[in-house]
Every structure is written in C-alpha cells, then in structure tokens.
C-alpha cells in the first residue's frame, strides 16, 4: 500500500502513497497512521499524515532508519482498526466583516456571492489532515468551479476562526496566524483547545465536516 519508503534526513521515514490526492489514497495514509500509533514502536516519536504521505520521525538515540523501515514493511495493515470518524457541524458567519476575500473570489471564480456561499454550504467535507498550525483541518474537496489560488501576498494576520479556501480545500484558522487562504467567513467555535489534552482538536483526519450558515446575531450570541 505504500508506494515507496525513503529517508527524510537521518531521523525520519518518508512514506509515499502515490501522487493522487483523493479520499482513497488518504484513507490508506490514515489507516497506517492509526495502526502505527497503536503499536508504540520504541523510538518513534511522531507521525504526520498528510494527503498522500506519512512522515514517521524517530529518536536517533533509540532507533534508526533501517529498523523503523523494517517495522513498517512488516506491518499488516489489513488488520488495522478503522477509526470511528465523526460528523461535525461547524457554524460559519459570512457577514462582510468576516468574508474578507469574497470580492476577490467573485472575480476569480466568476460566480456571484450567493452562488459561492450556496456551493460552499451545500457540501460535505472530508478531513484529510490537520496541521501547519495546531488543529487546522484540511478539508476537501471543493467543486472544480470553487477552486482558487492562494493570495499572491499572504496576510500577516488572519483572524482566529477564519474559514478559508485554496485549491480543492477549505480550512479553519484555529488561532491568529499569517496565511494566504481566501477567507470566506468566520466560526465562533473553538476548533482547537490546548487545555483539552486528550482531544485538543475538534476535527481530526478522517472526520466529515459540514458548514452551517449563521447570522451575525447568532455569531455574537454563540458563546454566551
């Protein structure tokens, strides 16, 4: 199921699951991820699943590339547990205070505002991975006519809760951060909470997400 394993530096394995970015490739990545996590192989200190790759990093004081590679090659992932993925509803307000890039998107996509919002809310998204900043979910896939490139010049500060689009993916800025995604709205929900050490992420790889439009009043009252 892994197309190729190589080394990323001297303390990580680079597992390539193929060039195609789709749900089936990603599901294989996630299956490996949970399976390896459960095995607690000595020395492995991090696993980073992404669309079509899995990076396995390890403590070079304890193990090395060849040992970890052998372990991965001998894994029987067919027996792997399939995780209980959740379906999560995320409220989003698209008031002009929040939809920072809607005018830009109208031009690039050549669609009306109404049509863009309709397309965006009328869809179920699959969480391919989380990361870049803590808890940020990478959600796909947007329809072909909703795909836009990143901003030419990224914003220095994207507000916390911003919901953005780039290419085939939507994401949520879990806290204020620099970033170049096209911002469509904002959610009052805390998608990442570092105080919940057992499950800081509301959305995890493999989960399904739907966005629900809320008004500015509903947004303001959300946390009261």
């Amino acid at each position: 199921m892994i197309k190729n394993i190589s080394n990323l530096g001297d303390a990580a394995l680079y597992c390539d699951f193929g060039d195609d970015v789709n749900k089936s490739t990603n599901s294989r990545v996630i299956k490996y991820f949970y399976n390896i996590k459960d095995q607690k192989f000595e020395g492995i200190n991090n696993l980073t699943p992404s669309y079509n790759k899995l990076i396995i990093s390890f403590d070079l004081k304890i193990t090395n590339f060849n040992k970890v590679k052998k372990f991965i090659e001998n894994l029987n992932v067919e027996d792997a547990k399939i995780t209980n993925s959740k379906k999560i509803e995320i409220p989003v307000c698209c008031h002009e205070n929040f939809s920072l890039d809607i005018n830009r998107l109208e031009k690039i996509l050549n669609l009306s505002k109404q049509k863009i919002f309709m397309n965006f809310f009328d869809k179920e998204y699959f969480c391919y991975m989380t990361g870049f900043i803590a808890g940020m979910p990478f959600l796909g896939d947007l329809d072909e006519n909703m795909r836009a490139q990143r901003l030419e010049t990224p914003r220095v500060k994207v507000p916390k809760g911003s919901v953005g689009l780039t290419e085939q993916f939507a994401n949520i800025y879990t806290f204020e951060s620099p970033g170049g995604w096209n911002i469509l709205g904002n959610t009052p929900v805390d998608v990442f909470d570092s105080l919940k050490e057992d499950s800081p992420n509301l959305i995890n790889a493999g989960d399904t997400v739907v966005f629900k439009e809320i008004t500015l009043d509903q947004y303001r009252n959300f946390n009261e």
């Binding site: 992404s50 669309y51 079509n52 990076i55």
Partner: peptide
C-alpha cells in the same frame, strides 16, 4: 508540492 509533514532541520 502538496502539503506534507516536516521535521526540524528540513
């Protein structure tokens, strides 16, 4: 490239 994992030193 398609976003993928990083480690320190990359």
């Amino acid at each position: 490239i398609k976003s993928e994992g990083l480690i320190k030193g990359v």
